[in-house]
Amino acid sequence: MSNIITAENLSFAYPPQEGKLAIPVFENLNLEIAEGSFTVVIGPNGCGKSTLAKQFNAVLLPSGGKVYVLGNDTSNEQTLLEIRRTVGMVFQNPDNQIVSNVVEEDVAFAPENLGVPSAEIRKRVDDALKTVGMYEFRNHAPHLLSGGQKQRIAIAGVLAMQPRCIVLDEPTAMLDPRGREEVIRTIRTLNRARGMTVVLITHHMSEAIDADRVLVFGNGGILADGSPREVFTQVELLRAANIDVPQTTALLYELKRQGWDLPLDALSTEECAEAIANALLTQTERSQK
């Protein structure tokens, strides 16, 4: 698989402000995002994961090193629009990324900016709205929709650019469980059914369970990188980095500390119950012998 985003020796620091020194966010980071993959980036508040995301579509430019999107250097002005339409971005607060007070007009915003012919815009808008399941709301005013619905409109607005990759910066942080579920389901469909590359930044571990890859970000660098199972079993590392582990993992971890013989990589409640039942079974068998 080829890489859609490549970061080479990436460093970034916010420029010095009056009387304060420059604040380095990360240094010498090397990272590749494979085309078609579902990557989840987790990390505590203020660890720089949002800053990293903004490097992926040239909203922020590296202070050292390079970021390439499909081989294009993000610091090259010439390919700026090309990069931004390849890597779409969705933010935390749905209210602050919707520009129009009619849903379909908002979804049309990006293709309008790109100079797409009107008939083609119509098609893209309808497609995007159907993909996120908001087609019947196309003539509604966004401020009357729920948080989850608004966030799906924001996703549709990005889809209308027909990007190859979508980066979502804590899209569920301000939503209730139902809205969170709606958004995560939409993202998952995009990845599985459409083969879209997804980079999801979150601090909800539960959203990382069926990702291809989990990156743990903290202290200006990558603390862990691997499949969800590989990452979630490193409970001490996650806790030290201020990340909540799912209660299932926490339960297995506690039992293991009490001397149980258990795997730590049972993520769903079913797998967790299965693992505990097995452990109990082998123990009783052993005591019967």
């Binding site: 909203v59 931004r84 779409g88 971005m89 933010f91 915003f109 990006a110 607005g157 990005v158 650019m161």
Partner: peptide, 8 residues
Amino acid sequence: TAMECRCY
């Protein structure tokens, strides 16, 4: 920022 990301 969001508008910039949408190629405005």
